[in-house]
Design a protein around this nucleic acid. Structure first.
Length: 492
RNA sequence: GGUCCCAUCGUCUAGUGGUUAGGACACAGGAUUUUCAUUCCUGCAACAGGGGUUCAAUUCCCCUUGGGACUACCA
């Protein structure tokens, strides 16, 4: 184990941060925190064609939302910066030159057209594809001539022949590649920008990265990286490749099939600590039977050895279950900030209303324990703010009968006589009325709920009535009375 | 096509050379509850197949099958 643990998450700002990337970041974070190491964020924006400013913003936002704060990186600084590769271009150029000098790399003047032809020809001949190394043996004179003509060129690494290149993947064990099937990878592009491979190796070395924890799509590139380290005379870091996260049909997670980005989950009412917990358990487990684990507990328990090499499927049902657990832990007050804007967007709340309106807290507090997402709270919250405009059809059949009107009229009288309109006294009143009249308590409660909320399910009736207040309850029961009058013919 | 990776309930996973293969989600049933939800109980359900090695393999090895990644002047 290297003396100093330094890891990095190195996303490319070409799109939103998806959950796979988030989990890689998370494992880097946990590993760093567990070992007292340093977690670095580095932006790999060497593909200026696919760069998106908004993607960069979203990456920062997603990481922050999940609480994956980096120790060194953009917006934070650090002694081995800058941490954005486009701000480090001169270095890559310099190192490429160094490799040409030491004859570990060479200039390739082949045109994209020729490369394409080579590829097609090799494919047809069922050979392994790859560059045919035409420019590898150019004489100094030929190179001079091409340079003099200002021919565009790229820089390629000379892959040595007949070598077995191996590296030890921390979660898969030893992996071997024969160097003969590796092609001479591009280090520097025509535009002077480095490829991922060069920039990555140069920066990991410059930033003294001890462990590279990245997605397993990089496994096949790793032997080339090892050779690159060798060409520079550097010791490679330790590697660990994370398995992919799949959607339930076994394919890649995508926006089309549902949520894929971290922000999608935020938008659909998932709590950051729930996503954090859930994602960590995709490919990792503490080795015992714990499922719900907070950040600190997870840091305590984390180890690379417990990461499975197997791809896992993202099960949203389980995420929702877990989110429900975290929702339960939260106080209503702590959820107001996130829920209030959603209530406003639904039109339940007028624009001048403020977050501290007690009905908002009441609604959240009564709904959160029966919801799995913040959005579910909001979907069921309408009657806290707006009188029901209709009654749930099935519930009408079940709970509104010919005699209901009379019951409501009596109730109204009794309610009116109440000194304190709260949960306890309401409970008492209903039970006393039930006993006195011989009407089953359910025959009182269910119709009242329907009158007051418009639906047959929800929080306990008396807490709901207290939250709504006497005035609103009265108004709604009266509305129900006239509705019953009007529709008496259809009632059983 | 080539190279590499992977394989325990539908899903996330624990686990061991000898276990009734454990837990969780989901699903089904039941109990509690004024409804819904929660909670509790019960049930359903897995070692991909074939060869080895071994007294004994789900576990170790090989093959097959299936899935995936890479095979760009993208990362």
């Amino acid at each position: 184990m290297p003396a100093e643990i330094r890891v990095r998450f190195a996303p490319s700002p070409t799109g939103y941060l998806h959950v796979g990337g988030a989990r890689t970041a998370l494992f880097n974070y946990l590993f760093a925190r567990r070992s007292g190491g340093t977690f670095i964020l580095r932006i790999e924006d060497t593909d200026r064609g696919r760069f998106q400013e908004s993607a960069l913003e979203e990456i920062y936002q997603s990481l922050r939302w999940l609480g994956l704060d980096w120790d060194e990186g953009p917006q934070k600084g650090g002694e081995v910066g800058p941490y954005i590769q486009s701000e480090r271009l001169d270095r890559y150029q310099k190192y490429a030159d160094q490799l040409i000098q030491s004859e570990h790399a060479y200039r390739c003047f082949c045109t994209p057209q020729r490369l394409e032809e080579v590829r097609l020809k090799r494919e047809k001949e069922k050979q392994s594809t790859g560059y045919d190394r035409l420019c590898r043996d150019l004489t100094p004179a030929q190179i001079e001539e091409n340079l003099a003509q200002n021919k565009p060129y790229i820089v390629r690494l000379k892959i040595p022949a007949g070598r077995t290149v191996s590296f030890n993947d921390l979660i898969r064990g030893k992996i071997d590649y024969q160097s003969d099937i590796l092609d001479d990878l591009v280090l520097l592009k025509t535009d002077g920008f480095p490829t991922y491979h060069l920039a990555n190796v140069v920066d990991d070395h410059a930033m003294r990265i001890s462990h590279v924890l990245r997605g397993d799509e990089w496994i096949a590139s790793t032997p080339r990286h090892v050779l690159l380290y060798e060409a520079f005379g550097w010791t490679p870091p330790l590697f660990a490749h994370m398995p992919v996260i799949l959607d339930p049909s076994g394919g890649k997670l995508s926006k089309r099939k549902g949520a894929a980005s971290v922000m999608d989950y935020k938008r659909t009412g998932i709590l950051p600590e729930a996503l954090f917990n859930f994602i960590a358990f995709l490919g990792w487990s503490p080795g015992d039977e714990r499922e719900k684990m907070g950040r600190e507990e997870m840091i305590e328990a984390f180890s690379l050895e417990n990461i499975s090499p197997k791809a896992s499927v993202f099960d949203e049902k389980k995420l929702e279950w877990m989110n429900g657990l975290y929702l339960h832990d939260h106080s209503a007050e702590s959820l107001v900030r996130d829920v209030f804007p959603l209530l406003k967007a639904k039109g339940f709340i007028s624009s001048e209303a403020n977050e501290h309106d007690p009905i908002v807290v009441s609604a959240i507090s009564l709904l959160k324990d029966r919801s799995r997402r913040l959005t579910e709270i909001v979907e069921n919250a309408s009657y806290f703010f707006i009188d029901p405009v209709s009654y749930e059809e099935k519930a009408v059949i079940k709970y509104f009968a010919k005699g209901t009107k009379a019951v409501f009229e009596t109730l109204i009288d009794k309610l009116d006589g109440m000194i304190e309109f709260n949960q306890v006294s309401l409970d008492k009143l209903y039970h006393e009325y039930s006993t006195a009249s011989g009407v089953a308590i359910g025959e009182l409660i269910h119709p009242t709920r329907l009158a007051v909320s418009g639906v047959s399910f929800g929080p306990g009736l008396f807490e709901l009535m207290q939250a709504l207040g006497k005035e609103t309850v009265f108004r709604r029961i009266k509305t129900a009375i006239s509705w019953l009058e009007k529709n008496s013919a259809t009632l059983q």
